[in-house]
Each structure stands twice: as C-alpha cells, then as structure tokens.
Amino acid sequence: MIVYDKVSKWYGSFQVLTECSTQVRRGEVVVICGPSGSGKSTLIKCANGLEPFQAGEITVDGISVGAPGTNLPKLRSRIGMVFQHFELFPHLSIMANLTIAQVKVLGRRPDEAAEKGLQLLDRVGLRALADKHPGQLSGGQQQRVAIARALAMDPICMLFDEPTSALDPEMINEVLDVMVELAREGMTMMCVSHEMGFARKVAHRVIFMDQGRIVEDAPTEEFFGAPRSERAQQFLSKILRH
C-alpha cells in the first residue's frame, strides 16, 4: 500500500532522511519510534507529499508521490492524517470540520456529508458535541474529532504523527482506544508513537529511527523481544522504564 524506496531528504545541507526504505502492506499497522529529531514526522509527511523529498521514491496505492505529474490534492484526499496538535479548524463547528472537505473536495451533497459526519462522531463517542466549536473541547475530544474528520474522507490508509503526545495523561487512552478499534477493523496505519503498550497490542511491525535512518524494522514480537541495534535497546529501556 505504502512503499518507500531509498528516500532521502535534505534541509539545505542538513540531511534529515537517509535512504529510508520500508513498506506498509494493506491492513498492516506499523508503529514508528525513535528519539526526538530523528526524522519520524518528516518520514510520514513525505507519504502524502506534505514534505517534498529529493531522492528515492514513495508510492501509495501504486501512485508515485514525488512524480511531477501526480495530482497531490487528489492523492491526499485518499490518505487520512492526524496531527500532534489536532489542527481542527477553530472557526468552524465540529460538524463543519467533519463535512467541509467531504463537500469541497469530494463533492458530496451537504446532507450526505452531515450524515457521514454524525455517524463518525457517534463512533468516537462525541455525537452530542456536533454544534460546539473546537475551542470548547478537551484535547482528547479534539483528537477524536480529528480522527473522525480524517475517516470521513473514506481514506485507504491513515497516518498518525504522535497523536497522543500533546495530551494530558488521563486523555491518552480515549484516543488510543479509537485507534485500536480502527486497527482491529483492518485499517492500514502508519503511526509515529511512543505508546509502546499500543504498539504491542496492535502493531504488526515496529520501525526504529535514529538520525534520519531506519535502524530497525522488525515484527513487533521480535522488536520487543530482542532489538538488534544498541541504539534501539537504549531507547527502549529509557521509555519503558516510565
């Protein structure tokens, strides 16, 4: 579904990504972890072209992201993305947040879009908040709405960039629960996350990044059982302790 082939990226002379290759198959859940600044966000933002890259190739559902002729907006409309800081549109109601792209991008009828929106709000347990504005919701609620907003586009896969790291501890689980359910339904997912409990529960594979390289890419059991690289071992022992 998502294939990275030797992707490299530079900011000026600073290399953020160095020949990253991996793939996420249909229905697979991959968790990406690694120290701060190792290029995790950059890696997944390349998958929908939010970040350009200078070398290598990425294809999503067979479509090359970096090729000049690719209709990026169209491709992005099929890839869901959830951000660390939610990024709901503050000037729009929750309902409008869920429907605007359905209507403007996919050309759905407003009533159709609203029905879909309500259905998804129901699913994340927030139907009662449809008429509120994002500023009136807690962080956990906002992130659940953000997931619903992405799902409203009927995406073929979902990208998550540290969806729980801006949340108060007591709100982390309500978001993870939604993600676990999504994973169990067979959604193809690429998640940057340090929630190792989540990774153990649903990830098929874990990728460990360090200094712009994919250092480890292993099935979940193997990764937690015996990470091969020393950096990954250190990293794991650090985050699993607390």
Binding site: N48, R76, S77, M81, F83, A101, V105, A150
Partner: peptide
C-alpha cells in the same frame, strides 16, 4: 498542513 492533508 491539515487542510492540504484533507486534499484541498
């Protein structure tokens, strides 16, 4: 970024 990610 969020708006672009939705395909706008």
């Amino acid at each position: 970024a969020a708006a672009q990610a939705l395909g706008m």
